[in-house]
């Protein structure tokens, strides 16, 4: 708990970072974003399929960024990262899930079905 003034470069979480990791994460995100943009602008799939494909791209990008850029894993010296991740998951489910629920209820009452959803 006491605040040491040792060299911050030697902290284990700082030691985990590497140029190669950052570039890999950056490249993966870039490729996925470019692919998603290209698919959307060329209308490569019907709308609902497109939605699914870009969602999958986004999910892979998130995992790549968590791993390569944020170095979140379950090791002992990253315990606070794990705690934040555990806190984050219910928030993620709640916000996305409740939004999805309220808008699906709204659309039932107000919107025609999106093409390709049947």
């Amino acid at each position: 708990m006491s605040h040491g003034h040792d060299n911050p470069i030697l902290h284990p979480e700082v030691q985990m970072s590497s140029t190669r990791g950052y570039f890999t994460g950056f490249l993966i995100s870039l490729v996925l974003m470019a692919a998603a943009t290209a698919m959307v602008s060329s209308h490569a799939f019907p709308p609902f399929g497109l939605l699914m494909v870009i969602t999958i791209c986004a999910a892979i990008a998130i995992i790549a960024q968590i791993y390569f850029l944020l170095h979140i894993d379950v090791s002992e010296h990253n315990i606070w990262n794990t705690v934040s991740l555990v806190l984050f998951i219910p928030l993620f489910i709640l916000t996305i899930g409740l939004t999805w629920w309220m808008f699906s209820q709204l659309y039932l009452r107000t919107m025609p079905m999106m093409p390709g959803m049947h």
């Binding site: 916000t95 409740l98 309220m102 808008f103 039932l108 009452r109």
Partner: peptide
Amino acid sequence: SWLVWLHHFFTMGAGPEV
């Protein structure tokens, strides 16, 4: 605090369950 935000727009019309 994360579970209540719709009460700012109850009148949106999300229906009775929501």
